[in-house]
Design a protein around this nucleic acid. Sequence first.
DNA 1: ATGAAAGCGCTAACAG
DNA 2: CTGTTAGCGCTTTCAT
Lengths: 334, 334
Amino acid sequence: MNNKKISIEDVARRANVSITTVSRVINNVLTVSDKNRAKVEEAVAFLKFKPNVSAQRLARGVNNSIGLVMPGYPGIFHSYYAIELIRGIGHACESLRLDMVFHITNGFNPLNTNNVGGVIFADVIENRKQVEAAVAAQTPCMVINNKVADLDVNYIAVDNVLGGEIAADYFVSLKHKRIAIVTGNLNTQSGYERLKGFKKVLKAKNIDLPKEYIYEGDFSRRCARLAAEEFLALKNRPTAIFACSDDMALEMISVMNEREVKVPQEISIMGFDDNPACLFSAIAVTTIRQPLFKMAEEAVRVLQSIMSGKQKIQCKKILPPVLVVRESCGPCPQ
Amino acid sequence: MNNKKISIEDVARRANVSITTVSRVINNVLTVSDKNRAKVEEAVAFLKFKPNVSAQRLARGVNNSIGLVMPGYPGIFHSYYAIELIRGIGHACESLRLDMVFHITNGFNPLNTNNVGGVIFADVIENRKQVEAAVAAQTPCMVINNKVADLDVNYIAVDNVLGGEIAADYFVSLKHKRIAIVTGNLNTQSGYERLKGFKKVLKAKNIDLPKEYIYEGDFSRRCARLAAEEFLALKNRPTAIFACSDDMALEMISVMNEREVKVPQEISIMGFDDNPACLFSAIAVTTIRQPLFKMAEEAVRVLQSIMSGKQKIQCKKILPPVLVVRESCGPCPQ
DNA sequence: ATGAAAGCGCTAACAG
DNA sequence: CTGTTAGCGCTTTCAT
């Protein structure tokens, strides 16, 4: 198989012009006569010629592809978070005509950053060493949704501490006193920081957050179910629960339904993400919106300008999440 | 920025050997003296040299990357199906040291197949033209989970007709007479064929499948909720429902819970996929298992041998799905 | 407007 | 075991 690929030379021969001219037309350089352009186009179509991208990249000295590095831990690809990032990055690459080299890392096998023009890291905790290497090698890169204060690297992130604060503030404004949280994976910055912001506000308001009101989860529906059951079994059951992802909130609401605990009359449940699923569930979920898709798109855009730009670009952006009030949270009962 | 990249020549100069020798050591060719190998390795480490992949690909004439083409319709990336495929392919690429170029297609902007050594298509319906083009261009390719009988292309798929049959057979064996289905997206082969197999068995068993027992869905939780509500509103409500994805089955069970309809005592619900979430829900979901992850891995493996192999490889494999009995289906009530 | 020629960084005969 | 020498397919000066 693999009967010889047709090259620019074949096209030139058939069109009876030089390969330079062919190169010009496939690159939309204007200084080509209409006559020659037509001949080349005919030959390209006839031979079904497609430029060899490796050769182009080598000759141009630039690489129009970006690597997306994500950690491979279980469940991540079934999270709204990761999928929205992938969608956003994929979408941006599509419109910017970049190739997206998707690399699921296990810690070993780092992405060969010489194979891409730049790279986006979607989770620093797991991939920190790779980020450091990329920075050291001066590979253009962007970090998404993780501020890396101690590294000189560009990032775009959501303010997760603020997210936790917003959740706690809202519950407090609703007069809740027994407020619980099921956290995300605390090894991720988003998991950790949401808890941090949440605690901070409760402390400031002098509301106790006992250990049994903190369930250490991992963003998954499964642990949300476990958490819900544990909270319900408490002698002093909470009247409000902050679930650090919408998936978890949704699952908790299901459990409440099964147990015939009314949401929000008996218990308030708040999510995080603004997953569209929040709107189609039995009860619309009050949540905290974070602009995942847009963040991803912007990361690509910035990365591209880093890749092409002569000037050094600084991008350390932190986006605020926003509260979306719907039906799953209500005033404290009794 | 972009202070000149170091090349193989820089390494050779520092190690005081020819570039050929450097090439040999970075490619693990054994015919290099220990002394030279050591010198080269030192230089590589010192200069942080990474080979330019584009140059390698050009020189070698082969391309160790594969394209994964998936349609970009809404919701696909939030389906268990798509994600398992991506995971499986990503995993296989990782261990085979292939780059995975992930391409979400909107119908325009087809993947430049000259940029990859081969391509995997994960949904033929939407991408048929691209598959045809790839076949015509003799690009090594594999089609996943869609038999394309009329194209000379390799594929690996699940027998979805059989899946539909298994579902219907099981309900029949449980003595159900009023059997409904909420389908997947009927524009996908899996959506269409499951319905087909389902209908076929019911017809053979002389069980009526009225229009109102067929809800045309799209694999999403949202439509499952709508379907459940519609079925429950029927004068003659079904006693068994086949949901063509586990996500849909799970959502239907939630609705039943909200409406206080007992599963499986009053109504049986079957899913499809064998999503692990089936095990952690309130009631373990009876489902039909399809080997998504393994199928994806195998597709990569076959594709790689097509890419490297001299001989033409034929792969037209259809895997059978299997019934997994759990708790959400029971005998017909009354 | 066009083409000749010199690379881009690396691999792979081929000699030695 | 090592180095010389052609390319791989394309872009890009630089003449013309």
